[in-house]
Structure formats: structure tokens, C-alpha cells
């Protein structure tokens, strides 16, 4: 009798756990559905807060899937015409001033992009959350009058840059309002705040983000989307080194 109850109890708990994790994974899937797309064209501005002054850089990027991406910088004048091509895990940059294509590899990828709180790797790691992590719902909270799922993501692959993440997901938009990236040891490394959710082509998308390397002093880096279009025709020749020089 006793044993049976225990067995049923365990089973029930297991089912609940599965259901719960499913919900967590479902939430994660919904975030992925919102955030990633077959292809997109984004015009954005990045504001980097230095110790002395802040700079804003605008760029337009064309992304197909998670492997291919092409970015052209539009302003300031110093940056204008600089292009960046990412194919899988390789990255090239083109500098119009002296017509050079430079491959950024190895340790340079870990450097910050234009002095921001983001590294090239951070920018390049476009894999969907569901590919890399398993999630559990840690709690459901009420923050600023909105209901929020707190998700704990743990890497299921070896080569994730961040072993775990914590996401505060808005229950209505299925977008994170805040994300924290943790080291294997549980040490908080980076924090992202997302805001200004807008509906674009039938999906919700955050138009503003702030990236912050919490180990460093400073205000972090602001990223703002000026315009975003999904499912555009992006010609394939854009993703070639030849296109960099055009």
C-alpha cells in the first residue's frame, strides 16, 4: 500500500517535472521563434559608453539562418564602409580605406567589438537557445505588473560559451526582459536587459538592449534597432568575400 503510494507519488512528480520542463522548453522555443528567423535585415545603432565619451555606430546587417551574416557600417564616417562577413565560425572584416580584408580568428574573436561590452564571439554565437540549452522554470513572478517566468537554462552541449543562463521571460510576449549569463561555477558574467518590445511581421521583438559585462566597470553597451525586416530576399552572393570589396 505504502509502496504503491510512493510509486504513484514518484511517477506523478516525474510527470509534473516533465510537464514543467516541457513548459520551460516550450517557453524557450517560443523565445527562439520570436528572436531567430530564416533571414532578417536589421538596421541598428550601437552606443558604446567609454570612460571619456560615448559613441554611436550604425550598421545594417543581413542574416540568413544562424550561419551566415553580412554587416555594413553606415556611420560615423570613420566606420562607414567597413564590412564584416561571418560564415559559420569564420569572420572577415573589410576596410575600405586601404582595401584590406582581414580575417579575425582565434583569440581576436574574444576581443571586444569596437570597444563595446560584446565580443565578436558574442555577436557570432547565433545558435538558437533550444540547440544549446535545456531549461527549467524556476519561478513565476510578478514584476512591474507583468507576469514573468524565471527560466534557468543549462548547457547540454560542451562548447557553449556560457554554461548557464537565467532568463526573465515576459509571459505575454515570450521575450526575455532580462538575461544573465553565468560561468560554469555559477559566477555571473554578463547581463542583458531587453525592452521596447514591438510586433514586427507577426512576432514580438525587443528594439532595445543593453549589454553589460558585470566584471568590468562602466555602463555597458546600448543596442537599438532602427528598423527590422524579416523574410526578405537576401541574395546569396552577399555572403562571399567578393561582396566585401563591393
Amino acid at each position: 500500500m505504502c509502496k504503491r503510494f510512493i510509486l504513484i507519488g514518484v511517477l506523478l512528480m516525474a510527470i509534473i517535472a516533465v510537464l514543467k520542463s516541457q513548459t520551460a522548453n516550450e517557453i524557450m522555443q517560443k523565445i527562439d521563434d520570436n528572436m531567430s528567423s530564416e533571414n532578417r535585415v536589421v538596421e541598428s545603432s550601437m552606443t558604446i559608453h567609454g570612460r571619456r565619451n560615448s559613441r554611436t555606430i550604425t550598421s545594417v546587417s543581413y542574416t540568413v539562418g544562424t550561419e551566415k551574416s553580412f554587416t555594413e557600417y553606415l556611420s560615423p564616417p570613420r566606420e562607414k564602409g567597413t564590412k564584416m562577413l561571418k560564415l559559420e565560425d569564420r569572420l572577415w572584416t573589410y576596410y575600405p580605406a586601404n582595401d584590406r580584408i582581414v580575417q579575425i580568428s582565434g583569440h581576436m574573436l574574444r576581443q571586444s567589438v569596437m570597444g563595446s561590452d560584446l565580443s565578436y564571439e558574442d555577436m557570432m554565437d547565433d545558435r538558437q537557445l533550444t540547440e544549446v540549452y535545456v531549461a527549467v522554470v524556476e519561478s513565476k513572478e510578478e514584476i512591474d505588473g507583468r507576469s514573468i517566468f524565471v527560466l534557468k537554462l543549462t548547457a547540454k552541449v560542451d562548447d557553449a560559451a556560457y554554461h548557464s543562463r537565467k532568463l526573465w521571460v515576459d509571459a505575454e510576449y515570450y521575450l526575455p526582459t532580462k538575461e544573465e549569463l553565468y560561468a560554469k561555477s555559477g559566477q555571473l558574467l554578463k547581463r542583458t536587459q531587453l525592452s521596447d518590445f514591438q510586433k514586427v511581421d507577426g512576432r514580438w521583438y525587443p528594439m532595445k538592449m543593453n549589454f553589460k559585462d558585470v566584471l568590468k566597470q562602466g555602463e555597458g553597451t546600448d543596442w537599438e534597432i532602427i528598423s527590422i525586416r524579416f523574410n526578405e530576399e537576401i541574395p546569396d552572393y552577399l555572403f562571399s568575400k567578393a561582396a566585401l570589396k563591393q
Binding site: 559613441r55 570613420r78 580605406a97 584590406r100 582581414v102 569596437m114 563595446s116
Partner: peptide
């Protein structure tokens, strides 16, 4: 020869 470096304002440059 180029130098992959950054300007004093953080822009990445590759002067040759």
C-alpha cells in the same frame, strides 16, 4: 603590412 588595432575611441582599424 597592416595593424589590426583600434583607435583611441575604440573603432577597429586596419591601417596599412
Amino acid at each position: 603590412i597592416s595593424i589590426l588595432g583600434s583607435t583611441m575611441y575604440g573603432s577597429m582599424v586596419v591601417p596599412t
